Every structure is written in C-alpha cells, then in structure tokens.
Computed example of a mutant assay.
Amino acid sequence: MSGLREKSFGIFCCLVLLVASFTSLYLRYVASLVPAHSLLVASEVTSGENLSINLDDTLNFGARQEVETRTSWKAPIIWERMFDPKLYDQKHIQKKSSVALTVFAVGRYLDAYLKTFLISAEQHFMLGLQVTYYVFTDQPDKVPHIDLGPQRSLKVIQVEKHSRWQDISMMRMKTISDTIESEIRHRCNYVFCLDVDQEFKGRFGSEALGDSVAQMHAWFYKAQKQSFTYDRNPKSKAFIESGDYYYHAAVFGGLCEHVKSLADHCFLGIMEDKLNDVEALWHDESHLNKYFWLHKPTRLLSPEYCWDQVISDNRDINVTRLIWAPKHYDTLRTK
C-alpha cells in the first residue's frame, strides 16, 4: 500500500513539473508577442506621466498643410508645429534616453569647423538628455576645449588621415560601426552621425529620436524624382534606378543597432565597389540612399534639421535648426 502511495506521489510530482514547465513556456511565448516597449514596470505605471504613451500618436500631421508630413509607409516627417517639445523631452528624460553624437574633424576641417560645431551643439542639441560627443580626428591634441553642461561628455578618438577626401568620407562608416560595437552601444541608446561643417542654430531635440532616422536633402525635398542624384551605374552596389526621397548623409541616426546596420551595409558596399574598381557617384551618401531604399527609415527629418542658407526659397522653413557652414573645398579638401 505504501508503495502505491509513493508511486502516486511520484506521478503527481511529475504532473506538477509538467504543468509548471508548460506554463512557463506559454508565458514566455505570450511575452514574445508583446512589444517590449509596451511592457511597463510598476514604477513607470505609478509615475506622474504614463510612459506607455506613444509620442508619435501626438503628432499633428495636419499642422503643415503646405508640406509632406508622412511617407507612403507612414513614417513621420518632422516639421515645426507638428510636435510638442515639452512632451517629447519629458518622456525621453523619464526614459533616461542617452545620445551619442559622432563627428569627424580630419585635416583642415578641425581648425575650420569643429569649435563652432561643438559650441553650437552645446546650445541646441538634445538639451536635457545625456549626450556623449565622439570626435574622430587625426590631430587629437588640437581638439578645442569646450565647457560642457551637466550629463554631457566628450571623447576624442584618433583616426587615420586618408590621402583622398573621398576615402575619408567613405571610410567613416567602418569607424562608426566599430565604435558602436566597442563602446557606444554600452553607453547610449541612440546615435546621431553628423558632418562637422555645420552649425546648430535652433532646437535639435528629442523629437528627432527614432529607430532609424534619415535626413531629407534640402536641395531635393521638393524636386522631381528624376532629378535625384542617385548612383545609376549598375556596376555599383549603390545603384538605384528610382527611389522614394533623396537623403543627405550629413545627418543620420537612430538606435545603435540600426545605425550599425546602416554603417555595415555602406562599408561593405564601398569595399565591394573598390574590388570592382567602381566608386559611387556621391560616395557614402550614395550607399546610404541605397540602404534607406531597401530598409525604409522610421523617421524623416525635414530640411529644418539641415538647411543650406544659399537656397533662396525658404518659405517652408519656420525654424532653422542646423545650417550648412560656408564651404571652402578648394582649400580644405585633399585631392
């Protein structure tokens, strides 16, 4: 009789373990169906502001009737008056969003542009958030000292100076990818990659943050598609016959994993072109446009976020956030 009881007890224990195992697997399966961003911890639920809000649901797409505010794949195009800056900043501060800003200052570009770029970034870029500047240069000792605000830091990384400016431009993609992998992803949620020959003039804030962020080119945002300067050489990995928009490589960003994917795609395309003795028309920008054609960005920045003041028709630009600095290619670029 006691043996029967022991056998029954053993069967019961096995059933309990089976039920527990299946329950655990089922809960893990259910959890996999729920987006991570929709799961809130108790402290978030009880905080003053409900962090479950989708900020992009608050965008006013009808605020700018004269311009395009959403793509065909429903990605927002960010313009002034579409968003509430206080709401975006509050949400990202609560989330403790952190941003890396990468910039290359190689050769004569360091003296010509870097100080103005950094000082203006301190005044306008992602204020209120944790920001780390990554300055890539061949002259670390010449990087100017800048007084940084709270939660803001700067790291200088030495890079090789290539003999041709085209190679400097194209090889930055490998450097960005390597640095995201080795350091940035351990410190920051987002990364933005900007050209140094620019100056911040107005708010460039948390409304620009997204999974994968592309910058509309100021000279092409109203142009016909046939005028876009894609690389149309079928021998190049950057080849595009027709695309959606023309994007500017002077500004791109997003979550670390998305920017790394973009940088890896561009670098591999560049290296394959080199093996085939091909060079894309606009170098890394051509490969960037190919990437965004294949992998649609989740957020587009209007030309407010990268404006050329040479353009006389500025009716759409309510706020100038970042401008192109005067170009002196004849004296700054290596041949």
Score class of each variant (00 low, 15 high):
residue 193 C to L: 08
residue 148 L to D: 04
residue 141 D to R: 07
residue 156 V to T: 15
residue 142 K to W: 00
residue 169 S to R: 01
residue 67 V to S: 04
residue 127 L to K: 14
residue 187 R to M: 10
residue 98 S to T: 09
residue 130 Q to L: 03
residue 166 Q to V: 06
residue 118 L to S: 03
residue 82 M to T: 13
residue 96 K to Y: 01
residue 108 R to V: 08
residue 197 D to Y: 01
residue 192 F to A: 03
residue 138 D to K: 07
residue 167 D to C: 01
residue 97 S to I: 05
residue 81 R to L: 06
residue 173 M to F: 00
residue 114 L to Y: 01
residue 90 Q to K: 15
residue 116 T to S: 12
residue 136 F to N: 03
residue 105 A to G: 15
residue 81 R to E: 12
residue 108 R to W: 07
residue 181 E to I: 08
residue 163 S to T: 15
residue 174 K to W: 07
residue 189 N to G: 12
residue 131 V to T: 08
residue 161 K to R: 14
residue 178 D to H: 14
residue 185 R to P: 14
residue 78 I to L: 13
residue 112 A to D: 11
residue 85 P to L: 02
residue 71 T to Q: 04
residue 101 L to Q: 06
residue 191 V to N: 01
residue 187 R to I: 07
residue 163 S to Y: 08
residue 198 Q to M: 10
residue 148 L to P: 15
residue 140 P to Y: 05
residue 170 M to K: 13
residue 162 H to L: 12
residue 201 K to V: 04
residue 136 F to M: 09
residue 101 L to N: 06
residue 77 I to E: 08
residue 122 E to F: 06
residue 143 V to S: 09
residue 88 Y to I: 06
residue 161 K to S: 13
residue 65 Q to I: 11
residue 103 V to C: 09
residue 172 R to C: 01
residue 73 W to H: 15
residue 183 E to D: 14
residue 134 Y to L: 07
residue 94 Q to A: 12
residue 119 I to D: 07
residue 109 Y to H: 14
residue 120 S to H: 08
residue 104 F to E: 04
residue 165 W to K: 01
residue 115 K to S: 10
residue 169 S to H: 00
residue 130 Q to A: 11
residue 175 T to A: 02
residue 155 K to Y: 03
residue 101 L to V: 12
residue 184 I to P: 15
residue 124 H to P: 14
residue 133 Y to Q: 06
residue 165 W to H: 09
residue 72 S to V: 08
residue 111 D to R: 05
residue 76 P to A: 02
residue 190 Y to D: 13
residue 102 T to A: 02
residue 133 Y to E: 00
residue 161 K to M: 09
residue 83 F to A: 05
residue 116 T to V: 10
residue 86 K to N: 14
residue 141 D to F: 04
residue 98 S to G: 09
residue 119 I to S: 08
residue 73 W to D: 15
residue 155 K to D: 07
residue 193 C to K: 11
residue 111 D to M: 01
residue 113 Y to T: 04
residue 143 V to K: 06
residue 178 D to M: 11
residue 166 Q to M: 03
residue 179 T to S: 09
residue 138 D to E: 10
residue 72 S to E: 08
residue 181 E to F: 09
residue 74 K to A: 12
residue 189 N to M: 03
residue 147 D to I: 12
residue 65 Q to Y: 04
residue 189 N to S: 13
residue 139 Q to M: 10
residue 196 V to M: 04
